[in-house]
Amino acid sequence: MTGEVDTISEETRLLIRVRDGRDRQAFAALFAHYAPRLKAMLRRGGMGEAQAEEVVQEAMLAVWHKATQFDPTRASASAWIYRIARNRQIDIFRREGRPVPDELTESPPPEPDAADALALDQETRRLRAALEALPPAQREMVERAYLGELSHSEIAAATGLPLGTIKSRIRLALERLRHELKDLRQP
């Protein structure tokens, strides 16, 4: 078990700075952290060196442009950037593009609840600790599944990761958002 940290992760804070202030320095710091990891992910998926860097570029540009939609009560920076990178990757390689779910709002509520964002961040840390605590063979299977090398049905559905609590957190954040949107739409 990791010790409880009472501040939001550095990466999520950087992404909020990009979202709210179009902060280039924060974006550069995010790039320095995620570009080499995204490249590693794409290379593991079988992509060549140059092509992987091409997709990293497009994915990071999408991070910059889509940052206004980032809601830290529903995703940590790592989860959100994982999604954005997958979407860009498929957009680039499939003629039909990536079908993505409708956004709930044009932009997240101006002041998402800081306690909720922190709680989600703590769950994210626990999830990562759980991943690192898996027996090596099982951990490798989980990694291969999320890196796109194996299908999840091939690894017998259960990934070995405790996703229930993080799901419940996000579900609560969605309910709250739905509620706020309903209030906004009242005449």
Partner: peptide
């Protein structure tokens, strides 16, 4: 419900992304 479950899988994907050995660009 499925939006939240999908986001949980993306959180797992994000955790894998964070723990990958970085490849210099």
């Amino acid at each position: 419900e499925c939006r939240a479950r999908l986001a949980a899988h993306e959180a797992a994907g994000g955790a894998v992304l964070e723990t990958l050995p970085p490849e210099p660009v």
